[in-house]
Simulated assay, not measured.
Amino acid sequence: MVNLVSGGLDSTLVGVLAHEEGLHTHPLFIDYGQHSAEMEWETCQQVHAHLELSTPVKMDLSGFGRVIHSGLTSDELNVKEDAFTPGRNLLFLLVGSTYAYQVGASNISIGLLAERFSLFPDQRNEFIEKAESAIEVA
């Protein structure tokens, strides 16, 4: 399983639960040009080492954030009011699935808010279902 990781609680918990179930994980950290990329990456590495989880791999897609502006990628926008980053979760799923193909994994995990708490259209079930269909074809 490819686990899309950020160093945060959700993706770490998925890694711990998978480890406890005896599943082999391939943690993948994606630097998409977010402000906190270095801090997230350092935290991710430390947490995985401390918990004796598989070592995460970092994929540098920081050019995405230089072109696609949001509060998470641009100093000119407000992180709270402008947090939606168009295409980010689709990018994560596409990259995660292509990495899964390369390492022979059949599943990927991504941490999204429950639909009733979702703030953005790419956190909803309809998005996930359509993304899965597109990835299957690709």
Rank of each mutant, 00 (worst) to 15 (best):
Y101M: 01
F92I: 02
Q34Y: 09
Q123L: 10
G111V: 07
Q102A: 01
S109F: 13
G96P: 05
S106D: 05
T73H: 02
Q46L: 01
R88F: 10
S11C: 07
R124W: 12
L93W: 09
F64Y: 08
Q45W: 09
G7H: 12
E38S: 11
L119A: 08
Q45F: 09
L23P: 04
V103H: 02
E21V: 11
L112P: 11
I128E: 11
D75C: 12
E129T: 14
I135G: 06
F127M: 14
F64W: 08
A105Y: 03
E136D: 11
T85K: 05
E129S: 04
T73A: 07
A138T: 05
P56G: 00
H24W: 06
S62Q: 08
G33V: 11
S118Q: 06
S36V: 11
E38R: 14
P27F: 00
H26V: 03
T55S: 01
L28T: 09
A37Q: 08
F84M: 07
S36M: 08
T98E: 04
E21G: 12
V67A: 15
D75E: 13
V2F: 00
G22Y: 07
Q123M: 10
V137P: 02
L13T: 13
T55N: 00
E42A: 06
L119T: 12
I30L: 15
L90Y: 15
W41A: 09
N107I: 05
L9S: 01
M1S: 08
E42M: 05
S62R: 13
M39W: 11
G65D: 12
T98A: 00
L23A: 15
G63K: 06
Q102K: 07
T73Y: 08
Y99K: 00
V2Y: 06
A134T: 13
A138M: 12
F117C: 07
G65C: 14
E81I: 10
N107R: 15
L119N: 05
Y32S: 00
A131Y: 14
T55D: 00
F120S: 07
G65W: 12
P56Y: 00
L113P: 02
L17S: 05
T12M: 05
I135K: 13
S109R: 11
L72Q: 09
L13C: 06
E81Y: 09
I108K: 07
E132L: 15
L91M: 15
N3I: 01
Q46T: 04
E76Q: 12
N3P: 04
Y32H: 03
I68H: 15
P121L: 03
S54W: 03
M59S: 02
L90N: 13
E42R: 11
H35D: 08
R66E: 15
D10A: 00
S74V: 01
E38C: 10
D60V: 05
D31E: 12
N3D: 01
S118M: 04
L23F: 12
L91F: 03
F92D: 05
I68Y: 10
E126K: 13
V16W: 08
E136A: 10
Y32M: 02
L112T: 13
I135C: 02
L93R: 07
D122V: 02
E40K: 06
N78T: 04
